[in-house]
């Protein structure tokens, strides 16, 4: 147990933390679960590295196909829509 902002945060295991990793990197957990995971990450290098790794891989996926729609597609759609 640890007290953060006058609230008691439960200590969780690595197994419990790993189950929350995807929701955490997707910014989909709040409140108690988030506080518990962040408390765990402050004390567990292995899980901290796991989160960093998952964030890194997610960022690589985020970079795929950046660059905007192809000129050809935009011109064809533009032209067609402008005809009416």
């Amino acid at each position: 147990m640890k007290t953060i902002n006058k609230k008691t945060v439960k200590t969780i295991s690595c197994d419990q933390a790993i189950k929350l990793v995807f929701s955490y990197i997707d910014d989909e957990i709040r409140g108690t679960h988030r506080a518990e995971l962040e408390h765990h990450l402050e004390t567990c290098r292995h899980c901290f590295d796991r989160v960093a790794f998952e964030k890194l891989l997610k960022s690589r996926l985020r970079r795929l196909n950046v660059g905007g729609s192809s000129k050809r597609l935009r011109q064809r759609i533009d032209t067609l829509l402008e005809q009416f």
Partner: peptide, 9 residues
């Protein structure tokens, strides 16, 4: 039209 980039991506 403003969503074409998102759609193609």
């Amino acid at each position: 039209l403003p969503l074409l980039d998102d759609l193609e991506r």
